[in-house]
Amino acid sequence: MSDKPTQDGFFDDPKVVSWILRIFYLLCVLLVVADFVVHRHIYTELEKIPAFYALYGFVACVLLVFAASGLRKVLMRSEDYYEAPLNDKSDRQEQE
């Protein structure tokens, strides 16, 4: 990116972003509060845990990302792992 255009977007303003996040955190708090106010139907024992869905969603995603980062160590290869790039570098020597 040689010439970077001006930072003109709505979301470039840090104030806007922090306000959005504040509203988002507030909503999260309200959702947990609602869990104690509203009477949920319970189908399984697990759902009796307070704010079960909120906890599960958060923990699941954190574990997902950590596991995926770990997987990267095992699975990640360079882009030309299966075959050498075919587009530009046609003169490139084949290994073997």
Partner: peptide, 27 residues
């Protein structure tokens, strides 16, 4: 609840710099 707290996890991981960066690669 499930969705908002998944989003919260994303926000938190990003703020902590724990979110895996996008990399060109083959998996």
């Amino acid at each position: 609840q499930l969705l908002f707290f998944s989003a919260l996890a994303f926000v938190w991981l990003n703020k902590q710099g724990l979110y895996p960066p996008e990399l060109r690669s083959v998996n």
